Simulated assay, not measured.
Amino acid sequence: MELTVDKDLENATLTVTATFAHPLEKVWELYADPRKMERWWGPPTHPATVVRHELTPGGTVHYFMTSPEGEQFHGIWRVLSVEPHVGFTADDFFADAEGTPVEGMPTTHMDYRFEATDGGARMVCVSRYDTTEELQKTLEMGMEEGLAGAMGQMEAVLAEG
């Protein structure tokens, strides 16, 4: 897998591009199958558990990541649009265990696109924030390192067949 992360502070966006030597259908399943998703979504030190998985327009994906100390960090996707094997859009926000947004924390507006390539597939995610300050806050929380660590686990899940 080849991974690039581009920060655009001026436009408050973070663009992640991952290229895989695996078929598009298998890459799509990393998001569409909650059991596969939870094996890579959190960084290695904060594994994810998917509580609810409705990757459909108007659906909700509720997950939490568990720290080495056992603390849980919940997140919710409000799914806006889905076109299987092509892409989806969702708003991702920090939440409590009941799914209520955590006040003062940024919302990530995610736009995922998937495409077949010669010999594999490419996934591009543009994460947009309402302000540059919100993007900066997530970067200071370790978002870039967390993304790289989490996505670095995708290959092992894809290799299983």
Rank of each mutant, 00 (worst) to 15 (best):
K7A: 08
A159R: 13
G142F: 05
M110K: 13
P34T: 13
G161L: 13
V5P: 13
K7Y: 12
G104P: 05
M110H: 06
M110D: 15
T131L: 01
P68C: 07
K36T: 07
W40V: 06
P101T: 02
E38Y: 05
E54A: 09
R52H: 03
H46T: 03
M105F: 13
G119M: 12
P57K: 06
M143W: 09
G59T: 04
L55A: 01
V157I: 11
G42I: 03
M123V: 09
R52L: 03
H62G: 03
G120L: 10
R122M: 09
L55D: 07
H62Q: 12
H74V: 02
T66Q: 12
V102F: 10
E155M: 02
L55S: 00
L24A: 04
W40G: 00
Y31G: 09
F114P: 05
P84D: 03
L24P: 07
V79K: 00
M65F: 04
M143Q: 11
A148M: 14
V61S: 08
P101I: 04
L147A: 10
V27F: 02
L80R: 14
G59W: 13
A148D: 14
D118P: 02
Y129H: 10
R78I: 07
L135I: 06
A32D: 08
A150I: 09
E38G: 07
S81C: 01
L135S: 01
L55I: 06
F20A: 00
T4Q: 02
S67P: 11
G161K: 14
K137V: 11
A156I: 12
C125L: 08
T45Q: 12
Y129L: 07
V79H: 13
D92E: 09
D111K: 06
G99V: 00
S67W: 05
T117I: 06
G75Q: 02
S81Y: 07
T107K: 01
E25V: 08
Q153D: 13
W40S: 01
E54S: 04
D33A: 06
V157E: 11
A148K: 15
E98F: 10
E133M: 13
T56I: 11
L80Y: 03
M143N: 12
Q72W: 07
G70M: 11
M37D: 02
E140I: 00
E71V: 13
T131A: 05
L55R: 02
N11I: 00
T107H: 06
A148L: 10
L14M: 13
M154E: 11
M65S: 00
L9E: 10
V157T: 05
G58M: 04
G142N: 05
H46Q: 14
Y63T: 14
A150S: 15
E103L: 10
W40E: 05
T56Y: 07
L158R: 11
G104T: 00
